[in-house]
Nucleic acid binder design. Structure first.
Lengths: 213, 213
DNA sequence: AATTATCCATATCGATCGATACGAAACCTG
DNA sequence: CAGGTTTCGTATCGATCGATATGGATAATT
């Protein structure tokens, strides 16, 4: 679990595993799991196949580590937005605008790795597709949790279905990911996010937790 | 261009090309272009490789024909909704609810082939990915056209950006496609669609776009 | 019946896929 | 330095990829 293993002896590595993992992550992000070949990884990571396999076990493990790294380095905006001490509307606004920015970063592949990584897969890669779906479902569940808290404090109507609304918001983010992949600019994604926000039920008319922010 | 070619002599086909194309389409729909192997196609279509290549040239041509067939047989709801003689809001409502149904048909793969077919692709399959993006862009353009017509007749505020709103709606549909792929039921997709409709600017209060709220 | 054209079935093709065997090289421990 | 351990570079593995060569079979045309 620790990436700074103790070298109990033996020849030291001639490369930086984190840099190599970054290169792999970007390649998977751009081309998806199956369409990214070892030859492409070899070139992008600057490593020989034995180096890759010694450091990352196999292609599937490498991809899973790339997913973890992506989660840590590229989409911190999500947890940040959902846990910020702001109103529910503001939290959702930050979430969607954060996605607009994260899905269209210059020099990075468009969209979200969790969407592009393996939306369709061969039977052999079904486990990878399932893993990505798990990430997407977790994102939706995190949104639902935030909405439920917002409803509990009066930010949202008591009758609102948090699951349904979370599915809408997660769907919008997934759609933004595809629009980003199709070349949408950060400004266009921001407009999309703002438009999506208009579906939020009016807020502020009633709240049990009065001046929250 | 005619699928009932003239048999100017020679041994007749022992299979129905349309049935075979249907099988291929469903396989591409489920697994995407690259992850669908000839071995899978061979089994699903019930044909030998020479039969496939004789009838459909190669894998890429087969996929493009599957795209055309998909467009003709599975997503007629879109053109239908956008060309129906109803209000703009009703047209968009039919579009989104039609997508909810089309993306979750029992016995068919979830989501839209135009999204799942090749969201990420290897460099060799870039042409296929571009083709699918062209289909998606065309859908968005068709929505924008409908919105522009709606705005012209006062269904929508004069200041509304049809391009921006079309990008939102196309994004929502793309997101619905992914939600469907993640197992969302037709009811859940309908709720998502209804939620997305709430972002539509109010209609009917003004025809000349006078009191813009 | 002879000719011509197309399709069918079998057996594979070369290229690429992900993954390794092997032995030399480079570090720690004793 | 000797022993142990790990990574290095080179070469290549078997499996699968998309795609075909080949020759017999079946039809319309002459």
């Amino acid at each position: 679990m620790d990436n700074s293993e103790k070298p109990r002896g033996g020849r030291p590595r001639a490369f930086d595993p984190d840099r190599a993992l970054d290169a792999a992550m970007h390649l998977f992000w751009e081309h998806g799991y199956e369409a990214t070949s070892l030859a492409m990884l070899r070139e992008a990571m600057g490593l020989t196949p034995p180096q890759i396999y010694n450091a990352f076990t196999d292609k599937e493990t490498l991809f899973r580590k790339a997913l973890t790294r992506y989660h840590q380095t590229e989409i911190g905006f999500a947890l940040e937005a959902l846990s910020a001490p702001v109103s529910t509307r503001e939290a959702i606004r930050r979430l969607l605008l954060g996605a607009a920015e994260a899905y269209s970063r210059p020099g990075k592949p468009g969209g979200c790795l969790f969407v592009s990584g393996a939306l369709a897969a061969s039977p052999q890669a079904q486990a990878i597709a399932d893993e990505l779906r798990t990430y997407r479902k977790a994102s939706e569940a995190a949104i639902a949790d935030r909405l439920a808290r917002g409803r509990a404090v009066g930010d949202l109507p008591a009758g609102l279905s948090v699951e349904g609304f979370a599915k809408y918001l997660a769907g919008v983010m997934n759609g933004m990911s595809i629009q980003a992949r199709d070349g949408a600019s950060v400004e266009e994604l921001r407009v999309l996010a703002q438009t999506a926000l208009a579906a939020l039920p009016a807020e502020g008319q009633n709240q049990a937790a009065s001046s929250k922010e």
